[in-house]
Amino acid sequence: MKHTITLNVNGQKYTVDVEPQEKLLDVLRDKLDITSPKKGCEMGECGACTVIMNGKAVNSCLVLAVESQDAVITTVEALHADGKLHPLQQAFIDAGAVQCGFCTPGMIMSAKALLDTNPTPTEMEIKEAIAGNFCRCTGYKPIVDAIQSAAAVMKKEGA
């Protein structure tokens, strides 16, 4: 039986018909053409599908679409909406934290969820925040560096 849900993605309201077993990731990718959340495992193990849902980083492959009724969802597409890069995006570029790029959107969303609630994280808090995001290219170090430097920039800009 189809359900009709309404959700807010990147500041826009969408109403879509979904199957009961359909995942938020598939709705975003197939029905809304928002393809930055990636399919890496479909089992919540790799973090490539991470989006921010109601302020929290979630694996969108583990969220049933019907659970996202009235949810506010942010993907990496929204961070560049006004043509200016988010400090995290700029820091990822500058620190060499991007290689194949498949983990990058999810990684940035996990980092954003962290910095939104904890603007001055310790290195260990950063590592914990991205522990569910798999990366095979970078060796993680540049990613941790990028998140640290983005936090510093955001702190400065906010001050």
Partner: peptide, 18 residues
């Protein structure tokens, strides 16, 4: 800076499944 970095941090980069 990598020439593909901007596409990859903005979600613009397309992979086969996209």
């Amino acid at each position: 800076t990598r020439t593909d970095a901007l596409e990859k941090v903005t979600g613009a980069a397309k992979y086969t499944d996209d």
